[in-house]
């Protein structure tokens, strides 16, 4: 087993009664990288993280943290990880300091060393002045910061953050991002995070695994994932038959119909192809009412990969038709 891989997940499956939450996923996390599990709610991200953190037993498959198997040596694994759960796990009745203190004791820290570490970390997350305030008076952002500080107290080799910025206001969110950047830069911390925010994964992660329905449907760096869509995406609103028009645009890598006469074109170089598109429209008697193009973000990648599910949600909630593109594969 190579030493630079801190987490190894092999064919992991987790079933809850008749629901399969995680359906045979495999990935590895290298030392010093930030690895993101990106996906909608219910994709199986949190379940995966709970298995890595020894809180759930896998139905099948194997998971190693360091060189320890999570089912055989859970205590060894627990020593190596620090985790911030999606839901708060602080004791609201106690002070910030006491929450840290009890955590330190549970991880075998004591005395002066423990006290100094607590104060240093509270300072790191800008909570030093609130050390002796009860947590129940803290805002959501402060709580999350305290939890991050707490998870770092025992100097874990792997930091796990489950939706670290969910439910936070933009300032708190930016602050959390800053801490994560700092941890990476100054301590070369290995971080596994889950998120359903595309921008968060893009901003923080070295590598991203996109999850949907318990499976990893794509894995790579942001650049690699975006490369799936080529360089540019062109959006057109048409007067006329969108499907037929799509078939005429043979230079496009992919052509998807999104909503009423709107199409999404994947091309290598949008500025060069735009005149071509107008020419084809003119010769076929199709009017173009609106045109725009942009560089693909993870958002486009995600819709590209999970179109099937989005179509289902469209049928149930027609009010979001404008936002969620309905797509067909271009038939060549």
């Amino acid at each position: 087993m190579p030493m630079d891989e801190i987490v190894i997940v092999e064919n992991l499956v987790k079933k809850f009664k008749d629901v399969t939450a995680v359906d045979g996923i495999s990935f590895t996390i290298k030392k010093g990288e930030i690895f993101a599990l990106l996906g909608p709610n219910g994709a199986g991200k949190t379940t995966t993280i709970h298995i890595i953190a020894t809180l759930l037993r896998p139905t099948s498959g194997r998971v190693f943290v360091g060189k320890y198997d999570v089912t055989k040596d859970p205590n060894k694994v627990r020593e190596k990880i620090g985790i911030v759960f999606q839901d708060p796990s602080l004791d609201n009745q106690l002070t910030a300091y006491d929450n840290m203190y009890i955590h330190g004791k549970l991880y075998g820290l004591r005395g002066r060393e423990l006290h100094e570490k607590i104060m240093k970390l509270l300072e790191f997350v800008d909570l030093k002045e609130y050390a002796y305030k009860q947590v129940r008076y803290f805002s959501g952002g402060m709580r999350r910061r305290l939890e991050i500080a707490r998870s770092l107290l025992h100097e874990p080799e792997l930091l796990i953050l489950d939706e670290p910025t969910i439910g936070l206001d933009p300032q708190s969110r930016a602050k959390i991002w800053d801490y994560i950047h700092m941890l990476k830069k100054e301590h070369d911390m290995t971080i596994l995070l889950t998120t359903h925010y595309m921008d968060e994964a893009e901003e923080l992660a070295n590598r991203i695994a996109i999850m949907d329905h318990g499976k990893i449907i794509a894995l790579g760096t942001v650049e690699q994932l975006k490369a799936m869509l080529g360089k540019d995406v062109i959006y057109l609103t048409l007067d006329g038959n969108a499907k037929e028009f799509c078939e005429k645009l043979i230079f496009a890598k992919d052509c998807n119909i999104i909503g009423n006469n709107r199409i999404e074109l994947l091309v290598d170089n949008a500025p060069r192809y735009l005149p071509e598109i107008f020419r084809i429209a003119l010769t076929n008697g199709i009017g173009i009412r609106e045109v725009s193009y942009r560089r693909p973000t993870l958002n486009e990648v995600f819709l590209h990969l999970t179109g099937r599910e989005l179509r289902e949600s469209l049928e149930e909630t027609p009010s979001i038709i404008q936002k969620l593109p309905l797509r067909w594969r271009r038939s060549r």
């Binding site: 809180l55 060894k76 627990r78 985790i83 796990s89 602080l90 991880y107 075998g108």
Partner: peptide
């Protein structure tokens, strides 16, 4: 419900003593 139990469940200390 308020999560502190999870904090004790991921701790490496023996659960029996916890």
């Amino acid at each position: 419900q308020f999560g502190f139990l999870k904090e004790t469940l991921v701790a490496p200390a023996s659960r029996k003593t916890i």
